[in-house]
């Protein structure tokens, strides 16, 4: 949509050049070239095993790449621990299985990283946490434990937890795949709000409605390579590659 395009700036948030990754002898990511502008929202889709999750996990160094370069916000992702720490505090991540810390309350989940990584005083951290919990619309759950919340609520807490670190880029790894259907909408709404606030987002998902509504770019990956990328309307209505057509027919068919 036109309004969405306006928020994309000229600054480069993520620059991936000729990135390759092997798991043992298995070549899992092949010659990945990707540039993400600040404010861009990118949806990555593809069949399972195509390497899409691995790709975004390389960006915040949860996985190591063997060849090529990844630069996030001007910092090169190298083996220097300082660089990795800098990048991780700029990049927030949401997992498919939420990965909330079950032994801490919701509030404590959100204040943990600001207190221990950014050395924020506790009071201030709690204010920040409540602000973002209100943003994801569950401030009243602050003193409960993750086990007491529904899946949709937990994923929204996970989003708030990442936001408390004030990241400039958010990565989403299949955030709604583990949710019951009736809870998917509340999480997607949160993500749409985030996008409208101008957050740079990379999202691995199968939710094509979300892609249509919010994404600037849809990337299709298969067998470790980027096969096709385009604006959403063009991508869905006019897929160029055979593999993209096959995938879209399987996803959108039923």
């Amino acid at each position: 949509m036109a309004e969405a395009q306006l928020q994309v700036s000229d600054e480069v948030a993520i620059s991936i050049q000729n990135m390759n990754k092997w798991f043992g002898s298995f070549h899992v990511l092949i010659d990945i070239d990707l540039t993400v502008q600040r404010g861009e929202r990118i949806v990555i889709c593809g069949p399972s095993g195509s390497g899409k999750s691995t790709l975004i996990r390389c960006i915040n160094a949860l996985e190591e790449h063997q060849k090529g370069s990844i630069t996030v916000d001007g910092t090169l992702l190298s083996s220097d621990v300082k660089n990795i720490d800098t990048i991780r505090s700029e990049v927030g991540m949401c997992f498919q299985h939420f990965n909330l810390f079950p032994h801490l309350t919701i509030l404590e989940n959100c204040t943990l990283a600001p207190i221990w990584v950014r050395k924020t005083p506790k009071k201030e951290a709690e204010e920040i946490a409540m602000h973002f919990l209100e943003k994801v619309k569950i401030p009243e759950q602050a003193d409960k434990y993750p086990g007491q919340l529904s899946g949709g609520q937990q994923q929204r807490v996970a989003i708030a937890r990442s936001l408390c670190m004030k990241p400039r880029i958010m990565l989403f790894d299949e955030p709604t795949s583990a949710l019951d259907p009736e809870m998917i909408k509340e999480v997607l709404d949160t993500m749409i709000e985030l996008a409208e606030d101008g957050m740079t987002m990379l999202c691995v998902t199968h939710e094509m409605g979300f892609a249509r509504q919010v994404a600037n770019r849809v990337i299709f990956m298969d067998a470790g390579q980027i096969i096709e990328q385009n604006e959403p309307e063009e991508f869905f209505n006019n897929p160029q590659s055979e593999r993209t057509k096959l995938f879209l027919s399987q996803i959108l068919g039923h």
Partner: peptide, 21 residues
């Protein structure tokens, strides 16, 4: 679950912090 280790890593906690907390 491995996800706990990963969540701690992605929040920027270092080894002693992740282990202790």
């Amino acid at each position: 679950p491995r996800g706990q280790y990963e969540a701690a890593d992605s929040l920027g906690l270092d080894y002693p912090q992740a282990m202790r907390l």
